[in-house]
């Protein structure tokens, strides 16, 4: 039983590593800053979750499990805050996003890029 659970944990770790690399490629590949933020968000949420859950499934002692859970929650609350602060600062300092072509044609909903 123990072997099964820890190999499931190993699978989670491997999946997390692969997804992390795909997210890193996305950060290099996407065209502008705002779209790169989305690719970085993949690394912040799913990769952190998969790797920390994978470590929990390796079944360390209970104190270590609780610390891993604390780190998981801390990351899930802190990362959106810092990404929001980064995006908001970039937007207020005048970095304009590259928008979809159809969106630029009918200038209705999108705010600052149309003015």
């Amino acid at each position: 039983m123990d072997v099964i659970i820890s190999s499931i944990g190993g699978l989670f770790l491997l999946l997390g590593g692969i997804i992390a690399i795909i997210g890193g490629i996305g950060v290099l590949r996407f065209p502008d800053f705002y779209t790169r933020m989305h690719a970085a968000g993949v690394g912040d949420t799913l990769v952190t979750g998969l790797i920390l859950v994978g470590l929990i499934l390796q079944m360390p002692e209970w104190l270590v499990v609780i610390k891993l859970i604390i780190i998981l929650f801390m990351t899930l609350f802190i990362n959106p805050t810092s990404s929001h602060a980064l995006t908001k600062t970039a937007f207020q300092n005048g970095l304009l996003p590259v928008l979809h072509k159809k969106e630029e044609a009918n200038k209705g909903d999108a705010g600052p890029s149309t003015r």
Binding site: L13, A20, V27, F33, R36, M37, A40, G43, D44, V47, T48, I51, L52, L55, Q58, P60, L68, I71, T75, N79, S82, S83, L86, T89, A90, L95
Partner: peptide
């Protein structure tokens, strides 16, 4: 190319460092 891309890289590097330290401990 912009200043904010570099901060994004710093932030990403930091979160990955947290995971790296956890994994290294195990």
């Amino acid at each position: 190319p912009t200043f904010y891309d570099r901060i994004l890289a710093v932030n990403m590097f930091g979160t990955k460092t947290v995971l790296f330290i956890c994994l290294l401990g195990f």
